[in-house]
């Protein structure tokens, strides 16, 4: 029978799970960097005066965040090769994560940018600063620190969504757990340990973010 908990087996599979978790963390890291950068682009474009561009980006953001990441991952992994862009599981997964979460981070940045007092824009204009300097030297330095906790929360969310990339063949921690349980016919230890690993990382991370929230909120 496969019931019960086998400590020896649990210890035996830990190294393999850890290797899988490293892939999960790598995908999270790369996905976050993409989401941070792309989201900022989306946010700045939406402040832009070119109405068409700003509407297109707005519509895309609303559409993309209302539809499942899983389907988006399929599109990137299975459809892009038809137009000559073939990506591996990791690259496709990171692109899917980054694009999906950029739709969230862009809203976060937007709120942060809107929270910069209008007087700051006016003061920058009064000094005849070039547009790029207004953004880089005045607006973003004030907006970004304020939104760091919100961005942190999305990194944690993303981390927990990486496992669905197993559908496009990414060998992350849950895939490893599934493989292990298929080999041994013991699903209990691998999947339970995978869950515990997620908890061990995301809980402390969320405590850190909450502390950050309180700090930025207190100012």
């Amino acid at each position: 029978m496969t019931g019960g908990w086998d400590w020896a087996y649990a210890v035996e599979i830990l190294p393999a799970l850890w290797r899988g978790l490293q892939v999960t963390l790598l995908a999270t890291l790369l996905g976050s960097l993409l989401a941070f950068g792309l989201g900022l682009v989306f946010a700045v474009v939406q402040r832009n005066r070119v109405a068409v561009l700003h509407r297109v980006v707005w519509a895309f953001v609303q559409f993309w965040r209302s539809t499942p990441l899983l389907v988006q991952a399929y599109v990137i992994y299975q459809v892009l090769p038809d137009v000559g862009i073939t990506l591996g599981s990791l690259a496709a997964g990171v692109l899917a994560l980054g694009l999906h979460y950029a739709c969230y981070t862009s809203e976060v940045y937007r709120a942060g940018i809107e929270a910069v007092p209008p007087g700051q824009w006016e003061a920058a204009a009064a000094l005849s600063l070039p547009r790029s300097r207004v953004w880089l030297a005045v607006v973003l330095p004030q907006a970004v620190p304020r939104v760091l906790p919100a961005l942190g929360n999305y990194v944690i969310s993303m981390f927990k969504e990486v496992p669905l990339l197993l559908a496009i063949g990414l060998v992350e921690v849950v895939t490893v757990a599934r493989q292990l349980s298929a080999e041994s016919f013991r699903p209990v230890e691998p999947l339970t340990l995978a869950g515990i690993l997620f908890l061990l990382i995301s809980y402390p991370a969320s405590v850190v973010v909450r502390r950050l929230e309180r700090r930025t909120g207190a100012r």
């Binding site: 981390f159 869950g195 997620f198 995301s202 809980y203 969320s206």
Partner: peptide, 12 residues
């Protein structure tokens, strides 16, 4: 439930 991944919960 916030700390463990939804996919893991589903498979579990």
């Amino acid at each position: 439930f916030r700390g463990t991944s939804e996919v893991v919960q589903l498979f579990w």
